[in-house]
Amino acid sequence: MNTETDNLPPLPDDAGIDNLIRRMADDLSDLLAERQRHRPVLVGIHTGGVWVAERLHGLLRVEEPPGALDIAFYRDDYTRIGVNPVVQPSHLPFSVDDRHIVLVDDVLYTGRTIRAALNEIFDYGRPASVMLAVLVERPGRELPIAADVAGLHLDLPAGEHVTLTGPDPLGLVLGHTSNRQSRTGD
């Protein structure tokens, strides 16, 4: 469905993505220890972020299963494009109050998805802290948001987008924004 883009480095396959996630897990462990954040919980953003959060969960020593957020009801483009198809309802299987949350997404681009996710998390309670881990980070931020941990830095032109496919195997796919069927990669 997507047109492959020339002049870009080859994207990692499932094994490559797994390596990236392992490195993210190591970086997260170090960072959590350094900041003395104990008993963290993972929260993935639908859909790609949930897949990454599930793999991170298998690598980190986190007791509770990861939570999942669908930010459809918190998007800032509702008045322009209407209600988004809901993938899965949000589900946080723990109280967020006073917990250290690691928010996980597949691609960080404009930062608007993360803004929406933060708003939604705070409607569930008051976490002690929130960190951001993303598989792919690309330039183009429209909000003061930065990742604490990123697996891959990708310098894509504005008309291109990158999407995580999965859950098994995981893959990264490039495409033109005009061809997009779903709104991902922001």
Binding site: Y74, V83, V86, Y124, G125
Partner: peptide, 24 residues
Amino acid sequence: TEILDQAEGFAGVSEQRVKKVPLC
């Protein structure tokens, strides 16, 4: 079916402490 699927999403809102979403 789309109405029913959307309603599944909204049913979760009552589980939030703030039983509200900023959509409208």
